[in-house]
């Protein structure tokens, strides 16, 4: 393999804001290679943002999900235009399923999006998703972190949402937008209604088609039952460019809520601890849950939590026991 040198070089180029290095690192992350190095890089960039990013607006991660053909890519393309118009940079990770038999994939989302070769503030990467419909690619969280560390204010994930994938996407995205479209005649199927639960925002897309009001009315009665959390429902037509600004506004509102809601920040920190440290840590007699509680209650800062973990890890060297 002998590519320690290569990864180090890539990280240096990334830090110097080299777009090709970003592109390459995304590939490595998607393949699960050099994860440690990349995590390290992302962490360092978070602590010391790249040039020109200090004081930049807060970051948004938005998932756009919905059945095949509902118009996700087209809408993402429109969102790119609106966001650029507002002066925000935007990166897209567009996921399409990979064949479980051949490993092949036809990644056809990007051709629905505007190509803006002259605009460095837009980045689009197509990704194959193993594991069938609804799943999201492994290490997508790291890819999002790379894009953010590079300076993209918005990261949009396009995923075919159908089932378990949605819960996975929740861990990465601040806001999950579910697209539905007017359907000939029928009532909304109940399986679909199950998906509504994971959405923060429901878009009746292709609102230029007949039947949009009917679908909207049905959804409203389904999602806004007494006792349930309220989910905004919007009508959008990408073809007619209607409802796009409103959609961005709603996403902004929801994202700021999700950011300030302590529960989501807590969940993320917990996940991180669980995933990376807990096992090793507890083998050394550490008590991860205790630390998390201390952090929640404000008795411990992030730094103190990590210091405790690192100390214990360090104490695992044979001489210390």
């Amino acid at each position: 393999m002998g590519n320690r040198q290569e990864i180090r070089e890539l990280c240096q180029r990334f830090a110097a804001h080299d777009r090709q290095a970003l592109s390459r690192l995304l590939t490595l992350a998607s393949r699960g290679e050099q994860l440690e190095e990349i995590r390290h890089l992302v962490g360092a960039a978070r602590a010391a943002p790249l040039d020109g990013q200090r004081g930049s607006p807060s970051r948004r991660v938005v998932a756009i999900t919905g059945s095949p053909g509902v118009g996700k890519s087209t809408l993402v393309g429109r969102l790119i235009e609106v966001l650029r118009h507002q002066g925000s940079s935007v990166a897209v990770l567009a996921c399409d399923p990979q064949s479980p038999l051949t490993g092949g994939a036809l990644l056809g989302d990007r051709f629905r999006m505007p190509s803006r070769p002259e605009d460095p503030q837009v980045f689009i990467r197509s990704l194959a998703t193993p594991g069938g419909r609804g799943a999201i690619p492994e290490h997508i969280d790291l890819m999002v972190a790379l894009l953010q560390a590079f300076g993209f204010a918005w990261v949009i994930l396009e995923t075919v949402g159908a089932g378990q994938g949605e819960t996975a996407v929740r861990h990465v995205a601040d806001v999950v937008v579910l697209l539905v479209q007017p359907e000939a005649g029928d009532d909304i199927q109940w399986e679909k209604a199950g998906l509504f639960e994971v959405a923060d925002l429901i878009v009746v897309h292709k609102a230029d088609l007949p039947g949009a009001d009917k679908v909207e009315a049905q959804i409203r009665t389904l999602v806004n039952l007494p006792g349930c959390r309220e989910v905004p429902v919007l009508r959008v037509s990408s073809h007619q460019k209607e409802g796009l600004e409103e959609l961005v506004k709603q996403i902004e509102i929801l994202a700021s809520q999700s950011r300030t809601s302590a529960s989501s920040a807590k969940a993320r920190l917990r996940d991180l601890l669980r995933e990376r440290f807990v096992q090793a840590f507890e083998q050394l007699g550490g008590q991860a849950e205790e630390l998390v509680r201390g952090w929640e209650e404000g008795r411990l800062s992030d730094e103190e939590v990590f210091a405790e973990v690192i100390e214990r890890m360090a104490s695992s060297s044979p001489s210390a026991n």
């Binding site: 092949g104 994939a105 036809l106 990644l107 056809g108 990007r110 051709f111 190509s115």
Partner: peptide, 16 residues
Amino acid sequence: ARGLRDAGFHVIYAGL
């Protein structure tokens, strides 16, 4: 594009 996909390639279709 479809043929290459079926042969295991990851095909990014950039279009017309």
